[in-house]
Nucleic acid binder design. Sequence first.
DNA 1: GATTTTCGTCACGGAATCGTCACATTTTTG
DNA 2: CAAAAATGTGACGATTCCGTGACGAAAATC
Lengths: 226, 226
Amino acid sequence: MKPKILVVDDEPEAVELLEFNLKQAGYAVTTAGDGAEALKKARSQVPDLIVLDVMLPEMDGFEICKSLRLDPTTVKVPVIMLTAKAAEIDRVLGLELGADDYLTKPFSPRELLLRIKKILARGQSEEKVKDQLRYGDLLIDVPRHIASWKGKTIELTATEFRLLTVLAQRAGRVQSRDHLLRDVWEYDSLIDTRTVDTHMRRLREKLGAASQHLDTVRGVGYRFVE
Amino acid sequence: MKPKILVVDDEPEAVELLEFNLKQAGYAVTTAGDGAEALKKARSQVPDLIVLDVMLPEMDGFEICKSLRLDPTTVKVPVIMLTAKAAEIDRVLGLELGADDYLTKPFSPRELLLRIKKILARGQSEEKVKDQLRYGDLLIDVPRHIASWKGKTIELTATEFRLLTVLAQRAGRVQSRDHLLRDVWEYDSLIDTRTVDTHMRRLREKLGAASQHLDTVRGVGYRFVE
DNA sequence: GATTTTCGTCACGGAATCGTCACATTTTTG
DNA sequence: CAAAAATGTGACGATTCCGTGACGAAAATC
């Protein structure tokens, strides 16, 4: 039995690309171009997972996600959201919407496949939304917006905190400067990529010994190591 | 043994939705559409928890809650109240009613499930949502609508008091201005987010030394610290 | 209905933060 | 080994963000 995946995006090209990749990977794929169609298909076919673009005409991804959660038939179907702005991530993953994961555009098909695999693998078992990340003596408490090292609070600005959080959440995987700009700043931010370097420096300064977790991968980007 | 939950709401749609979600989550569900039915079923079946809408025809949620507390059979059954208005929270939490938790509409099924899980986990409803919050010399008496510092009453307006209460109840966690607007004001309030600042200022002024509990998290929101 | 209180908005100013640049340092390349 | 490329660092103006005071509207009180 192939797992069924519903792809919702208004751009035909994007849909086609995703469809191809997912089918290649052995999934059964259905698609929808707008909110109404998406809800209809979600209800009638009940896919095992939904890939949902946020930027849609008329009914946006947030609305769709809410509707899915309100409908008994689809309440449990995992959702991966595309194109969330950094500032919206909390909302996307939070209780209000309850998406299971998100990706910022543009992303590689491989990346998406990994996330899908991970979510489907955990099956019916519920996974708690982590609001505390701990790596050795470094503790990141997202809802409290506090980072600490050996119990001692580290004063971080909003941007620094977000940068650290994004890196830590993707621990082990290298994040390119572009990728970080999308996730930590805004999707369409016109900010210079070198600005990331500056913030990394400030972050390292403040982290002190804890900055050992922050690797530079020359020619690629930065990585959080455990 | 599945925990039994009684859902009380006069809107069939809402009942159906809740019923489905709760059953999905592994609970045994019974429902009631009005106060009389609710009390009858509560007495005869003695559920492990009751989800109670405030807005009901004839006998409203407050009355039902009171009656439940007066009856020895149901006095210990935890109650989660559903309310549309932030202004009603004071009453819900008070000793007068003795609800165990509340949710403001609209909420996601996930949110409700989390609260239910939490309440059932702590056994025989030992700790309710406190109607008295004490942090050092600061005392917040929710039902009496009184805040005091070192025994001395602090005169607060309704909005200021609610703001303080919401922050204190979520002590430690940063609350964004948007979030506060939703919980302290109305859900769909069209109020400027900067208005929160003004009320924070007034609150701090009146709190005097006690305002040390109120942190500003620049670029994020406000936080109550212990 | 008049007075008082409370509420929401606005504009201003100071301070924290941010983004960029120039330059130093390190690493890679040929 | 020298040049080029990439990253680290320090400094500085620009911007953003928050606290504050003032003001008119709305609500509550009498």
